[in-house]
Computed example of a mutant assay.
Amino acid sequence: MDFDWLNTFLEVARQKSFSRAAERLHVTQPSISAQIRALETYLGHRLLDRGGGKVTLTAAGRVFQPFAEQSLIQLKHIRLTLEDMERMPRGTLTISANDSTALYVLPLLITKFKKQYPRVSLNIIRAERSKTIALVLDREVEFGIVSLPIRDPRLHIEVIHEDKLVLVVPAGHALTQLKTVTLSDAAKYGFLVPKEGRRRELIDHLFVQNKTARRITMELDSSELLKRLIVAGLGISFMPRINFLEEIKAGLVQAIEVEGVNIPRDLGIISLHSVPLARAASAFFTFATGTTRPDPGTDAIDVGEELEDESALAIGTPPPRTKSS
Rank of each mutant, 00 (worst) to 15 (best):
A21D: 06
V168A: 01
A21T: 09
L57G: 02
T217I: 14
F287L: 09
V141K: 10
A213K: 11
L57R: 02
L155D: 08
S271P: 04
T317H: 12
F285S: 04
F284S: 02
L192F: 12
G44E: 00
E306I: 14
L206K: 05
D163A: 10
H273R: 15
A174G: 02
K179M: 11
A13M: 03
Q74K: 11
T58N: 03
G260A: 05
L183K: 08
I124R: 04
S223N: 13
I150P: 06
Q35K: 15
P153S: 06
G268W: 03
H173G: 05
G172W: 04
F244D: 07
T212H: 04
V253E: 06
S33F: 05
A186L: 06
D2Y: 03
I315Y: 04
E257R: 11
A250P: 04
I78D: 13
F113S: 04
V169P: 01
R24G: 10
G172H: 06
A60L: 02
T28H: 08
A97W: 04
S237V: 10
I269P: 00
G53T: 11
L277M: 09
R293Q: 00
E257L: 08
P318F: 12
H156D: 09
L135Y: 13
D84Q: 13
S147N: 08
L252C: 00
E142L: 11
R198G: 05
S147D: 05
F244P: 08
Q35W: 03
F143R: 08
E219P: 00
G251R: 02
G304L: 14
L108I: 02
K249S: 14
I236N: 00
T56V: 04
F3T: 12
S271H: 11
L167R: 03
E162Y: 09
S271N: 12
E246V: 14
I203S: 00
V275G: 07
G51N: 13
I230K: 05
T180K: 13
A283M: 06
P319N: 09
S121M: 07
E219D: 03
T28C: 00
F3P: 08
V55E: 05
F207G: 00
G304W: 10
H77E: 14
Y104W: 12
L175K: 09
